[in-house]
């Protein structure tokens, strides 16, 4: 297994970098999109409620792989030419944003309702109250679950391997299919995933404990 690192360290490193890059980009955008739809559900508007609900349910109930392959295979033919990395990252963003929307929504609900009323009574608009009073508190509640979403995202980014996204899984797969040393290559790839996910996972558990 050490020999896998020695002989293919370069390729694995490229994959490792791409996996991290893709996860960070997807986290950033899915936070924005997810929070937006979460707010949709908090706004007193039936129309926005429905849009938010539909978006969340659609992307939560379709496999990420199907979404990613759609962006890789279909979108470039009819809409705009994008490569595998981009297609995979877009798929990952949309998929994860639905979960983040649910998480943030729960966070908003956890903030005392009286706070919103109080803020409104003090003359803030709904959006102002949301931005300055509710969301900052809600995000404190949701940091551990969001961290877990990020861990999921790193793991889920492995679907980039299906769309030639040059991520860690793709690189590992390429090494395995040329050296045929499947056993050790996949273990090496697994270790590299754990380097990212395991410390994060323990840190989130620590945060959860601290918040209790």
């Amino acid at each position: 297994m050490i020999s896998v690192f020695q002989q293919h360290g370069q390729e694995l490193l490229v994959g490792f970098g791409n996996t991290l890059l893709c996860s960070v980009i997807a986290l950033f955008f899915s936070l924005i999109i997810g929070s937006t739809f979460a707010i949709f559900e908090a706004v007193p508007s039936r129309f926005l409620h429905i849009i938010g609900r539909v978006y969340i349910e659609v992307f939560r109930n379709i496999p990420l792989l199907v979404i990613g392959m759609f962006f890789y295979a279909v979108v470039p033919q009819y809409i705009v030419s994008i490569d595998g990395f981009t297609a995979g990252t877009i798929g990952l963003t949309l998929y994860t944003s639905a979960f983040i929307a649910e998480t943030v929504r729960a966070g908003i609900q956890a903030v005392d309702e009286g706070q919103m009323e109080g803020a409104r009574a003090n003359g803030l608009t709904f959006m102002q109250a949301m931005r300055h009073i509710i969301l900052p508190q809600a995000f404190r509640y949701v940091i551990p679950p969001l961290g877990n979403q990020f861990i999921n995202m790193v793991k889920n980014s492995s679907v980039l391997a299906f769309v030639a996204g040059f991520d860690l899984m793709y690189q590992g797969d390429m090494i395995a299919s040329t050296t045929f040393d499947t056993f050790n290559t996949y273990i090496a790839v697994g270790i590299l995933y754990l380097v990212i996910t395991l410390p994060l996972s323990y840190y989130m558990r620590y945060l959860e404990k601290k918040m209790d």
Partner: peptide
Amino acid sequence: VLELEDYAQAFTALKSGQ
């Protein structure tokens, strides 16, 4: 060189301009 899983996917990639 972009390497895909199988010919169906490789041809799909060609069609979609990858």
